[in-house]
């Protein structure tokens, strides 16, 4: 056996070991994630997911994509803003060291820039956040009704209808760096799921004598859930449902049982159509 052959054989062994190890680690992680009792199990209706379009039919994979909302609130000036629970204290807990006032930014960068951070997010299904959003929508309708000009009443009523019938009941209600701590605060495993995600904070350029304004955005690490072949017929019915709705016919709806394992990775346990 010549030198080159020996060298190629050694490198082949290394590459084979790499493939086996990488696959082994992934599959072992999946097995451990699904081995014990699920960390959470949510029953999602057709409002909490949709079937994404993939590559004009050249991707035969099946997925469901989660739909979720942020908590909204109105400020003193009447403007809407999201995630009112994400205040300075919470941001500090998440590791964002924010400048306090304009004087801080004079010796700092003009517009501070924060990297995205890995966090754990709390998803709440049909809980207080959804009830509050419904109450906000009802209050908005009432306020428009009693207003003399009734401007925007139709939009408010449509928004209320959407909240009652179509909008997702899944809300991001909290974030933290420790999943176990979050689970202790939100113990209901049929209502709350702790999922990995990331948070992005950015700032408005500070004005004279005004505190800097910050904005936030959360992204789930895995919003798109793979649907195994076993559930392909049910998924086909879901797609027919969507087509029915687009053509003005009534939807049957569906329920998806989504489990989250010990490593917080989700998988579909079942898909059933509603009667």
């Amino acid at each position: 056996m010549d030198v080159r052959m020996r060298r190629v054989l050694r490198l082949t062994a290394v590459a084979l070991l790499l493939i086996v190890t990488a696959n082994g680690i992934l599959l072992w992680d999946v097995a451990r994630n699904r081995a014990a009792v699920p960390e959470a199990e949510l029953r999602l209706s057709e409002r909490e997911f949709f079937v994404p379009q993939l590559w004009r039919g050249e991707n035969s994979g099946r997925f469901l994509q989660l739909r979720y909302q942020y908590i909204r609130s109105t400020g003193d000036d009447g403007a809407w803003f999201v995630n009112p629970w994400l205040d300075r204290e919470k941001l500090r807990d998440l590791g964002f060291h924010l400048p306090e006032k304009l004087v801080d930014t004079e010796n700092f960068k003009q517009v501070p820039r924060f990297p995205q951070k890995k966090v754990f997010l709390v998803l709440e299904l049909a809980g207080p956040a959804y009830s509050h959003a419904l109450a906000q929508a009802r209050a908005e309708v009432e306020a428009r009704r009693i207003a003399p000009a009734k401007e925007g009443l139709q939009d408010a009523e449509e928004h209320l209808h959407q909240m009652q019938e179509k909008n997702s009941r899944l809300f991001v209600v909290d974030a933290g760096l420790d999943a176990e701590v979050l689970r202790r605060h939100y113990p209901g495993r049929q209502q709350y799921a702790i999922v990995p995600g990331r948070v992005h904070i950015w700032w408005n350029a500070p004005q004279q004598q005004k505190e800097p304004e910050f904005y936030s955005r959360f992204v789930l690490e895995r919003e798109r859930i793979f649907v195994p072949l076993d559930f392909a017929p049910q998924l086909a019915l879901l797609k027919e449902d969507v087509a029915s709705e687009e053509q003005g016919r009534a939807k049957r709806g569906a329920v998806v049982q989504l489990a989250f394992g010990t490593h917080l990775q989700p998988w579909i346990v079942g898909i059933q159509g509603k009667q």
Partner: peptide, 9 residues
């Protein structure tokens, strides 16, 4: 594999 088992990237 990551997509099949919904493993975060």
């Amino acid at each position: 594999l990551g997509q099949i088992f919904n493993i975060p990237p």
